[in-house]
Simulated scan of single mutants.
Amino acid sequence: MTSATTRPPRPNAGTKGVARPEREAQIIEAGCRLFGEHGYLATSVADVADAAGISKPLIYNYFGSKDGLHVACVKHASAVLVSEIERTAALGAVGFARAVVTLDGMFRLLEPRPWLWRVVFDATAPREGEAQTWLAEHERRIMDFGREGVAELMHLAGNDDPLDIDAMRAAWESIFRALVNWWLDHPGESPEEMTHRCLRLFRTVFGELDLSGTALT
């Protein structure tokens, strides 16, 4: 009979009384922050262990390697971003209203955890492997939402040309990323201030916007 002192740990057991799923979430949160703030290349397993207040062997036990931990962080961060885009898409705004609502939602999401964006768009991360496969799938989902929103905007303007829509989608994707990156590089700017800045920029280029159905002005 196995004694209490020699009984093997349960598969879902954590450390120091913390359940394994909770401990994994803690490690992923610390990993996302460090990978996001310093990049994949400049972040070590030891750094993440120190930030999470655990040992390096525990990370290897849970995730197998630095790459395994990075994949878990990429999955978490990309899923959070996609979930937010899905949420704002479901609000029913169309045209420029949808564009501004989407940006506003992303700013508010990222304000307490800006590193999530950096994890997904980390130029130092490996270009191949499971993390990139996961990102490609999430990017496809984001592009589908972007294409849908752009198609609505172009239709309202009387343009249903497929190539025009695809070209505008590519332009919108670049603008969206550029505005989020600019905001992250200016941490003193609140989400509300950045949303109104986007409104001013869009109005400067496109004139008065129809924002009916939203709380934005």
Rank of each mutant, 00 (worst) to 15 (best):
L116T: 14
L109H: 08
E84C: 15
P126L: 02
A125M: 14
W134L: 11
P126C: 05
A123E: 15
E84F: 12
P112F: 00
F107N: 01
E130N: 08
V80M: 14
V94T: 15
A125V: 15
A125G: 14
F96D: 01
V80L: 13
A123C: 08
W117K: 06
A99Y: 03
R98H: 13
E137P: 01
F96K: 01
R113I: 05
W134A: 07
G95W: 02
E86V: 11
L110C: 00
L116I: 14
M106F: 09
V120Q: 06
A131R: 03
V100E: 02
A89S: 12
L91D: 11
L109F: 07
P114I: 06
E111A: 15
V100C: 01
V94E: 11
P126I: 04
R113H: 08
G95T: 02
W134Q: 06
G105F: 00
A136K: 02
R98M: 02
G105Q: 10
G129I: 00
A131S: 14
R118W: 06
E128K: 10
R98W: 06
I85A: 15
P112K: 02
D104R: 05
A93V: 08
A89C: 07
V82N: 05
P112Q: 07
E84A: 12
A99H: 00
H138P: 02
E130K: 04
L109G: 01
W115N: 04
M106K: 08
H138A: 01
